[in-house]
Amino acid sequence: MENERGGHERPNGKGAEVAVVKGQALYKQVAREMRKAIARGTWTPGEKIPTEDKLTALYGVSRPTIRQAVAELRADGLLDVQQGRGTFVRGPQPEHNATINIERTVICNGDQYHCPAGWQDAEEPTVYRVRLEPSAAATLETDEGEAAFLVQRLYTHESSGVRARYSGLLPMEQITSTVLAQRPEVFNTDAYAALAAAHGPIEWHEGVSARMPNPDERAALHVPENTPLLVSQRVTRTQADARPLMLETLTMTGAATQLTITHRPVNRERI
């Protein structure tokens, strides 16, 4: 391998065989050999690759060269850096022609509600008593600092294996006369039924946005680096006066993910 001083150097340790490419940057030559290790199965999907020290010994190059090579493979989607844990080989990702369809429609049958999304709890839900922050208070059209329950869940989609984070904010003033005051952790469909029983017919306003994940989200949702998240935010409102009753946020990978929401015409007399 051509070294950083223009000469040649051979890998140390177990010694990867390196085909010299004249005029090619040293880190690119290292990246090429690392790609071969992944392709051969030397480093398997989900496996943590060797440390920087071991890689410098293996390829006989400096730390900056290894970092540049790792950065190139990260950009190519082959490696995933997890803060505080190390660098891992990425597992197989959905093909762009294999879109994951997430159904977000709410079906109402009498006083029962159903969401055909197929989510399952990946762990036990957690419930906190909180004070509403400014952005949530604005969405719920109430005062900052108002008391609320925060329900958090980690879901797995049963057909695709996609993981999603769910959070539900239930303002205390809207649930005091419902079973949600004692059991805020019930599924959202049960929450819809409880809110409708207390406040009359309900409807939903839903918006979808995209952003890059933070390290905690990447770890919890198994989202590779440089993959955006889809964030679906749903507000349950009364039909009579569009009063917000609950705020739900569902966060999941944006890779080949499609959200489907069914809309029906609203009677103009109710607008």
Rank of each mutant, 00 (worst) to 15 (best):
T139S: 05
A136R: 05
E124F: 04
T253F: 02
E52F: 11
H114S: 10
V20T: 14
G145R: 05
G84T: 09
H96W: 02
P134D: 07
F187C: 08
R131A: 07
V20H: 12
E185G: 13
L78P: 03
T251W: 10
T227F: 02
G110I: 01
A148S: 04
R104H: 07
A75F: 08
A137M: 05
T65N: 05
R163F: 12
N97Q: 10
L180C: 06
L55Q: 04
E72M: 15
Y128W: 08
L55Y: 08
R40V: 06
A37P: 00
M252D: 02
E158N: 04
V231F: 06
A210I: 05
T251G: 01
E33H: 08
A138P: 00
G254H: 09
S177A: 12
L195T: 07
D111G: 03
T99I: 11
E124S: 14
V151R: 12
R90Q: 15
H96G: 10
E2Y: 13
I202M: 03
T44N: 02
S167H: 09
D53K: 14
D143H: 09
P64Q: 09
I49H: 07
L78A: 10
R243E: 11
I271E: 06
N3I: 06
R67T: 15
R131P: 00
T139W: 10
V81A: 15
R63L: 07
A25V: 01
D190P: 00
A220C: 09
R10Q: 12
R32P: 02
V179N: 05
V127E: 08
I271N: 07
I102N: 02
A181Y: 06
L180T: 05
E123T: 13
E144N: 08
M252Q: 11
A122C: 05
A196R: 13
T44Y: 03
K22F: 08
A138M: 11
E17S: 15
C108L: 00
Q83T: 11
A39H: 06
Q24Y: 03
R183K: 12
N12C: 07
T105R: 06
Q83G: 00
N109R: 08
R74Y: 01
E144W: 03
R153S: 01
G168A: 12
S135M: 10
V266R: 14
A57C: 04
G254R: 08
L259G: 08
Q152M: 09
L247S: 03
K22I: 04
Q120H: 07
E158T: 06
E141N: 09
L229V: 10
R67C: 15
I261Y: 08
T87I: 15
W119S: 02
R153M: 04
L247M: 05
T251L: 07
R131V: 01
K28R: 12
